[in-house]
C-alpha cells in the first residue's frame, strides 16, 4: 500500500528572478515562501552544484543567525542545499515600496525608522544585506519592518560594504519615491544611527558620499560637473 503524506504545497509563483524562483504555499501548516535556486544549463554540472549549494547554505545560515540575534527576517523552516531550496515563513504585511506610497508622512517616516533599525542591527552583527530596497522589506500590521532576500548578503569586510547598503537604498528612493526621498532617508538614518551609534553612522555616510563621487554612477557625476 502506498500513501502520500503532504507536508507542504506550492500554490503560486511570486517571482522568477535571474537566480531563483520564489513561490508561496504552505509547509507543515504554516504559510510559507519557497525559494528555489535554479540549475543553469550554461554551467558545468559540478560547478553548478557547488555554486547552488554553497549559496543556499550561506543564505540560510545567515538568516538563522540574524533571527537568533533579533533581526526581523523570516524564520527558516527547511533547507536543502543540494536542491537549492529554502522554505521560510511567509511574512504577512505590505511590501514597503507600496506601503510608502499609501501612507501619510508620519507613518511612512516611522516605517523608514524601523527599516533603519533593522539594517543597523544587521550591520552591527557584521552582515551587509547587498540589496537593500523598499521591495525587499515588508511592513507588518503591527508597524514592525521585516527584511527579505538575504541572497546577496555577506560578511562585512570594511565600512564600504555597509555604505553600499545605504547607497543602494538612496538610489532606490531616488527612482521609486523621488518626491519624499530626503525626508525618508533622514528617517532611515535616524533609526540606523540609534542602533549603530553616531560614529559608525558618520563614517558610513562619508563613504556613501565617496561612492557617489566615484563616477561609476553617471547621474551624480553630472551633478558634480554642474556645481
Amino acid at each position: 500500500m502506498t500513501q502520500s503524506i503532504s507536508i507542504g504545497r506550492v500554490r503560486r509563483v511570486i517571482y522568477l528572478g535571474a537566480e531563483a524562483l520564489v513561490a508561496e504555499g504552505e509547509f507543515l501548516g504554516y504559510g510559507a515562501v519557497f525559494k528555489l535556486r535554479l540549475r543553469k544549463p550554461y554551467r558545468a554540472p559540478e560547478l553548478d552544484r557547488e555554486i547552488v549549494s554553497r549559496r543556499t547554505a550561506a543564505e540560510a545560515r545567515t538568516m538563522l543567525m540574524l533571527k537568533q540575534y533579533g533581526v526581523s527576517v523570516p524564520r527558516v523552516l527547511f533547507v536543502d542545499p543540494l536542491q537549492g531550496l529554502i522554505i521560510m515563513e511567509k511574512v504577512e504585511g505590505a511590501v514597503l515600496r507600496n506601503a510608502l506610497e499609501a501612507l501619510g508622512r508620519e507613518e511612512a517616516c516611522r516605517a523608514m525608522v524601523e527599516l533603519g533599525r533593522e539594517v543597523g542591527k544587521m550591520h552591527k552583527l557584521g552582515v551587509s544585506h547587498g540589496d537593500v530596497t523598499t521591495s525587499n522589506a515588508v511592513l507588518r500590521p503591527d508597524g514592525s519592518v521585516y527584511i527579505l532576500d538575504l541572497g546577496l548578503s555577506k560578511h562585512v569586510e570594511d565600512v564600504e560594504d555597509l555604505a553600499v547598503d545605504v547607497h543602494l537604498l538612496i538610489r532606490v528612493l531616488e527612482s521609486s519615491h523621488h518626491s519624499a526621498k530626503e525626508d525618508l532617508m533622514k528617517c532611515f538614518m535616524r533609526g540606523y544611527r540609534s542602533v549603530v551609534g553616531s560614529e559608525v553612522a558618520g563614517k558610513v555616510l562619508e563613504k556613501v558620499a565617496e561612492i557617489r563621487m566615484r563616477g561609476r554612477y553617471v547621474e551624480e557625476r553630472r551633478v558634480r560637473k554642474s556645481t
Binding site: K40, Y42, A44
Partner: peptide
C-alpha cells in the same frame, strides 16, 4: 575557463 566564462554569463543573465 569554466569558472571565468560562467561568472560572466551569470552577470549577463542578471
Amino acid at each position: 575557463r569554466e569558472v571565468a566564462y560562467s561568472s560572466l554569463v551569470e552577470v549577463a543573465e542578471r
